[in-house]
Design a protein around this nucleic acid. Sequence first.
DNA 1: GAAACCATTTGCCATTTGGCAAAAAGAGAT
DNA 2: ATCTCTTTTTGCCAAATGGCAAATGGTTTC
Lengths: 189, 189
Amino acid sequence: MKGFIEYILQFGNLNQQQIDLISRKATVLELPKDEYFSEAGKIAQRVGFISDGIIRVCYYNNQGEEITKYFIEENNLVVDLESFDNEIPSSAYVQAITDCKLLLFSKKDWNELLDTIIGWDTIVHKIISKALRQKVERRSPLVSEDATTRYLKFLEIYPNVVNRIPLSYIASYLGVTQSSLSRIRKNIS
Amino acid sequence: MKGFIEYILQFGNLNQQQIDLISRKATVLELPKDEYFSEAGKIAQRVGFISDGIIRVCYYNNQGEEITKYFIEENNLVVDLESFDNEIPSSAYVQAITDCKLLLFSKKDWNELLDTIIGWDTIVHKIISKALRQKVERRSPLVSEDATTRYLKFLEIYPNVVNRIPLSYIASYLGVTQSSLSRIRKNIS
DNA sequence: GAAACCATTTGCCATTTGGCAAAAAGAGAT
DNA sequence: ATCTCTTTTTGCCAAATGGCAAATGGTTTC
C-alpha cells in the first residue's frame, strides 16, 4: 500500500483523509504466475496496482502467433483501458508472468472515488496519459531497428525483467523468433 | 471551424455559448508543405486542429536516419504533448507533408479555456487519451509483422494518405528501406 | 522541347532473419 | 541420482531485406 500512495502522490497532492478513502477501497490480490488479470473477449472490470511481480499484455495475430505488446512491472497501474472505459470486450490478455501481488479496485469503487475525491480525476488522467505516452515511446522505435538494437533497447527499458521471464516472451515482444534472439544474445556477450 | 466543432462534440456536450468561447480563441494557420508545426529542441507552445492536409511526426535515430513515427490526417488534433504539458524541449519534428490548413490555439488561450469552460477538460482528456491509444494500437502491431503485412496495415489505417505523400516517408514509418517498399508494392499488384 | 531536379524502380549481391528439428541445458518431482 | 518436462541453444538451409548505384519516370522551369 505504501508504494501505491507514493506512486499517486507523484502526480498530485491529496490530504490524509483522501488517501485513507482511497486505501480503504483497495483489496489485495495474489495472482499466481500464468494466470490472467483480464482476458480477451471479456469486459475489463478492475484496476490493479502491481506491488510485486511482472505482468504482460498479449494477443494473437492473424497467423495465430502470440504477440506480447508490453510488460508492466512493479509499481505501475494495470488496467485494460479501452475495455474498461468503453465497456467493450477486450482484445488482449493481461497475464501475470511471475507470481504477482496487486492492489485491486473494482470498477464501482474506482468510479466512486473519481466522483468523491476532488482532484483524483486529474491525478488519474495524468497517470494514464503518462503510461500511454510511455507505451508509444517504448514500442514505436522498435519498428525501425534491427533485431540486435531492439534487444538492446529492451534491456534498457526493462533492466529488471530479462532474468525473470522466458525468452520466448521477449522474442514475441521484439518481433523476432526465439532462436534468432538466442543467437543475438550469444553475439552480444 | 465546423469540422472542429463536430469533432469535439463527439467527446462530450457543450452549449452554444461555450462553443463560441472556444471558437473565438482559434486562429487560422496555413502551413505550406514541408514546413514545421513544431520542432525538436523547442518547447511546444500550441495546439492545432488539422482542417486540411497531412502532418507527420518524425525524429532522427542514433544512426541519423529520419524515422516517421506517425501521420496525422485531417480532422485531428496535433500537439506535441510531452513537450506541451511538461514544458520540456521536444524530441520530435512535427511537419506538414502536404499544404495544410489548421485551427490554432496558443498555450495561453488553451489553458484559459481549460480553466473557464466546465467540462472542457474532460473532453480534452478523452480526445487525448483516445489519440494516444490509437497511436499504440496502430504502431505496435508493426513490430511483429513482415514488411508486406506492415504495408498492408498501413494501407488499412491510412487509406487516404498513400497517394499524397512520398514513398520514403511511408518506408521510414514502416521500418523498411524505400527500395524494399517499392519491390513490395510491385509484388502486391 | 530541353534541362534540371525530384521520386521511384531495378539489378546485383551481402547480410539478416526465419523455419524446422535436434541437441543441450535447466528445473522440479520422486 | 533419475526421470520428466520445459526452456534455450544449435545446425542447416531458405527466404526476406538491406546497401549501393544506375536507370527510369515525372515535374517544374526556362
